[in-house]
């Protein structure tokens, strides 16, 4: 039997980790136990996300979960493929997804990485979670807000709102102690980080434009595998892609999560107004474009491809 080591940065409690275990089980089944995937969750191989392109290129690990957003240093063009503000309806995500996948597959192959399907991240709701009732951009102007990327800092800055990148692990403390007044966060999973304990009010802003997590295989490993085993990997990867894709947009899940948060004492305010949403989107798109341009020709090209398709979808 052949065993492949698979790196993932997700903690074992995350649904993505469960998907990886399912993938491993399916590969085992398809190959009749001849090909095994040994998943190392939570970065336990000691590898860190920004290095993964280099690491796979050199074949230091067999497989890894590739998450385009992380590669600002080594492949800025890949980090700028998709960004917040790109979509305003969850369904749009599913329409744009094939294009995004194509760009990533091409980009990763330039690093000598074979891509075989992956995990479509669920389209969660993104909300603004505050200590006070806030559901308009005007109210946010006097507040400090926690965000997760430099694109978002730039976007909020264009709306005269002071934003700061704070890692998810420090978010609770930052709200508790008042370093920030609000957090821009995935409402659907806010409970897992106990956000309701430090921010009692929430208002819906837009759906999460989630970069898919692709399964990358190093060229060295790919070269060593038999045709049968390659086929097994492709089939299992595609299976995970379909399976997670089908579950990505789920209004029932979103509604249940919302009710759950209300039962925890969160006051859910009216959504941000349409006007606010489009102001935010405009600012986010400009910020996205700036990042793409900084990434050079390839970045600009990727940005143009994705936004053209988005334009068609929006129309």
């Amino acid at each position: 039997t052949t065993t492949l080591r698979f790196h993932s940065g997700y903690a074992e409690s995350r649904p993505e980790a469960q998907h990886l275990n399912d993938f491993a089980a399916y590969v085992d089944e398809l190959s009749g136990g001849e090909l095994k995937i040994d998943v190392f969750h939570a970065g336990s191989l000691g590898l860190s996300e920004p290095d993964m392109l280099r690491v796979l290129q050199r074949g230091n690990v067999d497989m890894a979960l590739l998450y385009g957003e992380y590669y600002t240093r080594d492949a800025p063009a890949l980090a700028a493929v998709y960004a917040q503000g790109a979509i305003t309806e969850p369904g749009q995500h599913m329409e744009i997804l094939p294009i995004i996948r194509e760009i990533y597959e091409e980009g990763f192959s330039k690093w000598g990485i074979q891509t075989i399907g992956g995990i479509v991240s669920p389209v969660f709701s993104v909300g603004i979670h505050c200590k006070e009732p806030i559901n308009s951009l005007a109210q946010l102007e006097r507040k400090a807000i926690r965000v997760w990327s430099s694109q978002l800092v730039d976007a909020f800055d264009r709306l005269s709102i002071s934003a700061e990148v704070i890692p998810q692990n420090d978010m609770y403390m930052a709200l508790q102690t008042g370093v920030v007044d609000c957090a821009y966060y995935l409402s659907t999973v806010a409970e897992t980080v106990s956000l309701h304990e430090v921010a009692e009010y929430e208002a819906y802003l837009h759906p999460w434009a989630a970069v898919p997590a692709m399964f990358g295989v190093s060229q060295q490993t790919w070269g060593r595998l038999s045709d049968d085993h390659r086929q097994v990997l492709i089939e299992a990867g595609e299976y995970m892609w379909e399976k997670t894709g089908d579950a990505a947009v789920d209004p029932v899940r979103e509604q249940a999560a919302r009710e759950r948060r209300e039962s925890l004492g969160v006051t859910i305010l009216d959504d941000f107004s349409e006007e606010d949403v489009s102001r935010f989107q405009e600012a986010a798109m400009v910020a996205w474009q700036r990042i793409a341009e900084r990434a050079g020709d390839e970045g600009t090209r990727n940005y143009a491809t994705v936004t053209e398709y988005l334009q068609e979808i929006h129309d």
Binding site: G46, P50, V55, N60
Partner: peptide
């Protein structure tokens, strides 16, 4: 022992 992975040393030192 890890199949010629000494280049990873620099990644982790840098990080």
């Amino acid at each position: 022992q890890a199949g010629g992975s000494s280049s990873l040393a620099i990644n982790s030192a840098w990080n």
